[in-house]
């Protein structure tokens, strides 16, 4: 029963970060500021959701379940490596294309 509780708590925390990131992408005034929640959304949200699924998967400890949970953790590691790199690449594209960052008082870019 405790296992389900842990899964639920982790799942809701993951949803909190996904919601925060989703709203942050919409509300922030500029391209560079929107990139900030986008990077956070991928890594932390998927970490929490994936660990909750992995823990839920470990109900009966068999080798195949353990391997599947390990593979889920592999996805988390890959997302942790790839998401910041992708965000950096997008930011690099914006900078090279000459997009000026937003200052206070400028209209929403």
């Amino acid at each position: 029963m405790v296992l389900n509780g842990v899964v639920m708590v982790l799942m809701f925390c993951g949803l909190v970060f996904f919601t925060g990131g989703g709203i942050g992408i919409l509300r922030f005034p500029d391209f560079y500021t929107r990139l900030h929640p986008a990077g956070k959304l991928d890594t932390l949200g998927s970490l929490l959701m994936m660990t909750s699924v992995a823990i839920f998967n470990l109900h009966e400890i068999t080798l195949s379940n353990a391997l599947t949970s390990l593979k889920i953790m592999l996805i988390v590691v890959f997302v942790f490596i790839s998401s910041p790199t992708a965000t950096h690449a997008i930011m690099d594209a914006g900078v090279r294309a000459g997009l000026r960052p937003w200052e206070k008082g400028m209209p929403r870019g």
């Binding site: 993951g14 929107r34 889920i72 996805i75 294309a97």
Partner: peptide, 20 residues
Amino acid sequence: VDRLIGVNAIGSKTVVLLVL
């Protein structure tokens, strides 16, 4: 490049949705 952010966000959510 804003559209890239949206697509990247959708892609990362799809990964989690697939596991679910």
